[in-house]
Design a protein around this nucleic acid. Structure first.
Lengths: 142, 142
DNA sequence: AATTTATATTATAATCATTCTAAACTGTTG
DNA sequence: CAACAGTTTAGAATGATTATAATATAAATT
């Protein structure tokens, strides 16, 4: 569990003022044992249920994007209608459970290194992401 | 180049009536040498420029979704604000050029098989997708 | 080939997530 | 504590997608 003062430094170090709203959002996102995968909607609901003061939806959007830009969060795109954020900012891949709509982080024990034999683009690789969709046997295969 | 009658059969075989609009969209999408990566907006623009009769935007949405459901198209999600469709329905991966916003298909010569050592979900894998984002050296790394 | 039925198209309205706006508020600096 | 820049806010605006319901078309039936 991180202390409030640690979040204050974290925010200051990246040029963000430690406001009440941002500190509350830090607490919700980063005071956890496990990685947190969430949508904006999940986060807004969590805050409205567990915080007496209301945080405006616009602020939640602004803050999540600021945190993403500062590298506190990674965005994971699963489908055009769902945007997830991930508090695990290390390089890693994901399983996506189509039955429950839940994301699961993978580490190198689950998915090996992706072998890019031939980068035909001639450009620098900025990221490599693997998404493994899983579902019960009864589901359609894609 | 496929003939109109071939598109008629293709549509009939999957239970879709071969209407003028659907045939025109087939022609735009499938009468090509190379794979076509497009957004709904790209397709709508292409049709309005190259077809004398107007096709309603609603019809373009309906048709693209119908074609996807029937397996003529694959949807590729790059970011929450851009949804691409791909006329290449075989299993393959992609490079995404962040400078130009263009997708490039990969085959096994470019990206090797992804080694899933350990499927912790206990469910059936419905797809494995790799997205390699590339950009010029001057771009930020993620 | 006319009639009936089911399906598709259309323009427009509705929806919904996200972003914008500009006024009020707060944190920081001197 | 005054001044300033940065932040929050409610509500409006935006824009992509979907719904609606009237009209049109394709297919099946007579």
């Amino acid at each position: 569990m991180l202390k409030n003062s640690e979040f204050v430094s974290k925010l200051r170090n990246s040029g963000l003022r430690p406001t009440k709203q941002r500190l509350k959002i830090c607490e919700v996102l980063f005071n956890r044992d496990k990685t947190f995968h969430f949508t904006i909607n999940d986060l807004a609901k969590n805050i409205s249920e567990n915080f007496n003061k209301k945080i405006s939806l616009a602020t939640i959007y602004n803050t999540v994007h600021a945190f993403k830009d500062k590298g506190y969060l990674k965005e994971i795109t699963i489908s055009s209608d769902k945007s997830y954020f991930d508090t695990n900012i290390t390089k890693h891949h994901h399983f996506y459970d189509e039955d429950t709509n839940l994301l699961i982080d993978c580490n190198d024990n689950e998915i090996g290194k992706v072998n890019i034999k031939n980068n035909i683009t001639g450009k620098k690789i900025s990221s490599v992401e693997v998404l493994v969709r899983v579902a019960s046997d009864t589901q359609n295969q894609n």
